[in-house]
Write a protein that binds this DNA or RNA. Structure first.
Lengths: 249, 249
DNA sequence: CGGCGGATTGAGAAAAATCAACTCTCGTGG
DNA sequence: CCACGAGAGTTGATTTTTCTCAATCCGCCG
């Protein structure tokens, strides 16, 4: 029976302990067994990034693939006048295999101190050639990414500001649960309000206001500026899915 | 040297004559050679759809994969209250291999009379198992799709209405050129204004207004309601990339 | 020729962006 | 240990963009 990603860690084919992120564009983050990952790592070079340092920039020749082992990163694209769209975040266990173009189509920048491993494209291609089962896995994972990308298109194209934030929070909560393997009621926000805004297609002010709105409705509580507690998960999900006709009330 | 999709038909690895679409989410449309396609077709069943008929609906069990041979289709997702996001269009040569989930995450509906071939997932999996080189090709094509999806996120998250329309038109023009293999100055719009709006995250009225705006600026001309002639390609590209600070002038 | 649906245009409303002021946090140094 | 300051975050007022609602136009098919 073919492996079908469902977003639940327990459904992974090999039970690899690496966690998953709900929001990743060209990143591939799961489904490789420990031996495979060890093999990949033996080809790789470890690199530490301090907060705000970049692994690479949009337009750099795409010579490397990456795997995150610690920390968190954001992926973004800039328009000519500086407008920025964050297309995803990366967390430990996420893999970035941009075997698509000559140049990176986006910039990858650390949200905090981060450790990652990189491999040359050639070494990676050789490795994949020697491990054919990876091929299919990569395809399935890429297809899973595509489904995520579609969800993000729905969010950006059709959801109201409060719905976007609710969706984002739900994704982060579910990711936290996949990592811990337990039911969770709170999660961490390793990114700034501006980063959230640039991911959700909003401004930092709107993010702030919608945060206040979700709070005043009793859906969430801020344990700190970067820790969100979910008080009413069903209502949050309802809002994320656009069930709430009157978003502001 | 690994095959790297660049969007140009001449760069395809096998020179398969099937065309490409600029806008496709989980669709995979190129890179398979004629013999492979013939093999796939021998497994498949031909199906004709009349305009507005669906190949399948969001939530249907995902038992089939598809290949388009004639016509055009739209892929969309609905929110609870009926808001719709079109995540892509499919054209002849496009392949839809949703080997991701138990259920389709979107609806596929014909824009006009359309001919497609479907295969059961099992038959397709078997076929791919017998043709391992397809595996890698599928991964590369999916990665290419992901890059497209990212571009669409930038469009939906950060571009103004006129810029979205300009980007869309440029994509369609470039696709038309890839199909014909020649420089083109006009292209067809097989979808309604509402479809365009739902693809660009706008309303039909805004699409209409921005169309008028591009026209009044001399960037395009409407040969008919569904045929756009590009008069100033550079200006259109400039607008698509967000170079125009004053979008309305 | 008539009518229907798609497309356009206009006026007003709503959502979010922008601009501006202020507050809170947190790290640093006295 | 506490005061300070810088940057992040919040809140408010206003503007802009896009949406919504409504009227009309147009093209196409019967």
């Amino acid at each position: 029976m073919p492996y079908v990603p469902t977003g639940k860690l327990t459904d992974l084919p090999h039970g690899h302990p690496c966690e998953t992120c709900p929001v990743r564009p060209i990143t591939i983050c799961r489904g490789l067994d420990a031996a495979t990952l060890a093999g990949m790592r033996s080809l790789g070079t470890m690199q530490r990034l301090r907060s705000e340092q970049s692994a690479f920039h949009e337009g750099d020749p795409a010579k490397r693939v990456f795997m995150v082992t610690q920390g968190a990163l954001k992926l973004y694209t800039l328009l000519a006048d500086g407008r920025r769209q964050i297309t995803g975040f990366m967390f430990p266990g996420d893999f970035l295999g941009v075997s698509v173009d000559e140049e990176y189509a986006f910039t990858v920048e650390a949200l905090k101190n981060t450790e990652l491993w990189w491999f040359s494209r050639e070494a990676f291609d050789r490795f994949v050639g020697e491990h054919p089962q990876i091929e299919r896995e990569l395809y399935r994972l890429a297809a899973h990414e595509l489904a995520e990308a579609q969800r993000q298109m729905v969010l950006l194209g059709r959801k109201a500001a409060a719905e976007r934030l609710a969706s984002f929070f739900l994704s982060l909560l579910e990711r936290t649960e996949r990592v811990s393997g337990e039911r969770e009621t709170s999660f961490d926000l390793p990114m700034t309000r501006i980063d959230i805004a640039d991911y959700l297609g909003l401004t930092k002010e709107t993010v702030s206001r919608m945060l206040a709105h979700l709070r005043s409705r009793g859906l969430i509580r801020l344990q700190s500026q970067s820790c969100v507690e979910v008080l009413d998960r069903d209502a949050l999900r309802g809002m994320a899915q656009g069930e709430t006709a009157e978003v502001l009330g």
